[in-house]
């Protein structure tokens, strides 16, 4: 409708038109704002309470502003070790799961072999199984083996568990990218004297890289905050989520909020960088 026509209708029915227009313009914005507040409020509370100066052990009531805990982020005993362990496990399990998962995705997408259908459904199992069941089964298995390096439970058993549940997510994510992959590009590479190895690294890999990166980010975030499966397979070691859980009964140290804030900022920074890079590429 042209603006002249709109004006004529508005003159005929002014009141209804104005109200309708108001809703047209504002309802979406209000709705969006509410949704954003709903999503960000918990994060805001975490950040706010990283500057709290609690009187006792518990950090639940606002007592006053301090940056004391930001200056001493690893103060509480065991926190530093827990964060380090979580990071190491997240990096290693991401690297291993991404490499294996990408290869599995390629195999499932490109080749037909005996048992492919079975493999296809098997790969979804870790995603479909409740974590608590998976954790319990892994515990049973490691105890049943009963010898080092799998028993007593340790760093290695956590890593094995994390790689296991991460692989399915990587396979699914990378396959989605491969499904739309133009195969004739690989033929073109072969036509231009690239052998299979060169074709993969020069053509296939760069083109599915966004899928691989997305899979790796997903795997990393799944690993770093996993509690249930980790708790079953950790034995005497303690990851960051386990540290928080253990402290929750006696009072969570403010430093947990500090580290939580850092993780949030890193995540936001990562998303910002990928978005910007994506935009630059499009242009």
């Amino acid at each position: 409708m042209t603006s002249a026509a709109t004006a004529r209708v508005a003159a005929a029915r002014p009141a209804r038109q104005v109200i309708a227009r108001f809703f047209d313009r504002w309802s979406l914005i209000v709705y969006t704002l509410l949704a954003v507040i709903y999503l960000l409020l918990p994060v805001a509370v975490i950040i706010l309470f990283s500057f709290n100066d609690p009187a006792g052990k518990s950090n639940f009531v606002w007592q006053g502003f301090t940056i004391q805990y930001w200056l001493d982020p690893f103060g509480p005993l065991g926190l530093s070790d827990a964060v380090t362990l979580s990071l190491v496990i997240a990096f290693l399990s991401t690297a291993i799961a991404t490499a294996l998962g990408t290869l599995i995705a390629l195999a499932l997408e490109r080749y037909s072999f005996r048992g492919k259908g079975f493999m296809n459904s098997l790969i979804f199992l870790p995603m479909a199984t409740p974590e608590i069941i998976m954790g319990a089964s892994l515990l049973t298995m490691f105890v049943a083996i009963g010898t080092p390096p799998f028993f007593p439970l340790n760093f290695l058993t956590i890593l094995i568990a994390h790689v296991m549940f991460n692989i399915s997510y990587v396979v699914v994510t990378v396959r989605a990218r491969l499904a739309g992959f133009p195969r004739h590009l690989e033929e073109a590479a072969g036509d231009l004297y690239a052998n299979e190895w060169q074709t993969f690294w020069r053509v296939t890999f760069p083109l599915i890289l966004p899928g691989i990166v997305a899979a790796a980010l997903l795997a990393f975030s799944l690993s770093i905050d996993d509690f249930v499966v980790t708790n079953f397979t950790a034995g005497g070691t303690q990851t960051f989520p386990m540290f928080i859980y253990a402290k929750s009964r006696i009072g969570i140290p403010v430093q947990v909020n500090v580290i939580g804030t850092c993780i949030f900022l890193i995540a936001v920074g990562g998303v910002a960088i990928t978005t910007l890079a994506g935009r630059r590429k499009q242009r």
């Binding site: 590009l185 073109a188 083109l207």
Partner: peptide, 20 residues
């Protein structure tokens, strides 16, 4: 012989240029 060992080149119907 595989394609990369043949002294021929192809212009594909959909061009198949490498987008990256």
């Amino acid at each position: 012989l595989p394609p990369y060992k043949r002294n021929v080149n192809t212009v594909f119907q959909n061009y198949a240029l490498f987008p990256h």
